[in-house]
Amino acid sequence: MDTGLQHLHSYMSYLVLAGVLISVIVALAGWFGNKPFTDKDRKLGLLGLIPAHLQWVLGIILYFVSPLGIASATEGFMKNSISRLYVLEHPLMMIIAVVLITIGYSRAKRMVGTGNGFKSIAIFYGIALILILSRLPWHAWPGN
């Protein structure tokens, strides 16, 4: 079960990155194009929100069942960069990223009809994307 979840979590990261990136690009285009934020644009924001939340749920489950998760939090794990990444840095940054995505979407959905919805998604999703990219375990990226 652990291996299947780990593979699902790894490959789903492509979907998360694509969804968040598309949401950021659409939001930037709308923001700088001075367009009104419509219900269609709000739904495009879901491309980043839904996969990020699904990935987060998978990650939380994996954190507790995988030997790379909480089980690795033994004495001295902070001295090992790989253990520190899996036990502390990756989960913490991903939680912060999902919170930012959620805040950005929640703010934007109340701004339908104005241009500020684009701004909210662009800023919050953009910061979340940077955090996600900064703490992905690139050495274990699918395909490497």
Rank of each mutant, 00 (worst) to 15 (best):
S81L: 14
N144C: 10
L85F: 05
A140C: 03
G117Y: 00
G117P: 00
H9I: 07
V20P: 06
Y125T: 04
H7W: 11
A108M: 09
F124N: 09
G59S: 12
V57K: 02
T3P: 03
I22M: 07
F64D: 04
I70M: 12
V87R: 05
V57D: 02
D41W: 15
K119Q: 11
F37H: 04
V20K: 07
F118H: 10
G76S: 11
L85N: 03
L136R: 03
K109S: 08
S23C: 09
V16F: 08
W56T: 06
S120K: 01
V20L: 13
A71G: 06
N144K: 13
G76V: 11
V112F: 12
G115E: 01
Q55I: 07
Y86N: 11
A122M: 13
I121L: 12
L8N: 00
K109Q: 14
G19L: 09
L129D: 10
L100I: 04
F77W: 10
L46R: 07
K79G: 15
K43G: 02
K109G: 06
Y63C: 06
H9C: 14
T74H: 12
K109C: 09
Y11S: 06
V112D: 08
T114E: 09
I103C: 06
V98R: 00
H139E: 05
F77C: 04
M93K: 06
